[in-house]
Amino acid sequence: MATPAEIGQTLVEASGLRKSYGKTAALRGVSFAVGAGEVFGLLGPNGAGKTTTLRILATLIRPDAGGARIAGYDVAAAPLAVRAHIGIVNGGMGLYERLTGREILTFFARFYGLEDGELEERIAWVDETLSIGPALGRQVREMSSGMIQKVIVARAIIHMPPVLLLDEATRGLDVFARRALLDFVSNYREQGKAVVYSTHVLPEAEEVCDRVGFLHEGRMLFIGTIDEALERYETDSLERAFIAAAQEVRA
């Protein structure tokens, strides 16, 4: 696993993000940064604000206050440039049922300027990386759920984005598909990419993240390495550390 000292330039930067839905405050000043070659775990229970944070980073929603930059581009001022530098996967995502894996990859790849030979090379690369060969000629409605998830990830990385945003990406996956995804995340980091890995399954984060942020009720309670979290909250599991952090705030 990479240590903070090995991490390169900052690719994701969120500062003071605030967002409310009516009277409900979803984010209350969230800040964090993720560098190249780093997997940052955005951890928290359902309703903590993880999805809202990732949607702001993906330019799908706007913050009420604060700001964020992806690969140096401001999410509010340059949304198209930001979108060109991210790949996004979430657990509730689907695919176009009546298109084949190849058609879906081609459809999205074209938005990133990939065509002809370069596109074929990139499809070959995602096939090699995720073993999606059988899905390429098959329509989504004929694929297994594990294969669908692989194609969703393939679609998110077809343009080799420097920043990958994963939101509960292992939700509903069987053990094989989950393992394949976690292995892929580790490999992707090795290629110098930044990954924001949002999950409420803390053992997964322990396995794959370099640093984690504890997000609870819209507040970032802690940011640091897993060892730092265990040391600070004097416990032996990330789950206990998270609970301790939440209790500390309540107290």
Partner: peptide, 14 residues
């Protein structure tokens, strides 16, 4: 409903 719109809107196209 199928969760494909979010992905499309996160692509670099107006």
């Amino acid at each position: 409903e199928k969760g494909t719109l979010e992905v499309l809107l996160a692509a670099p196209v107006s």
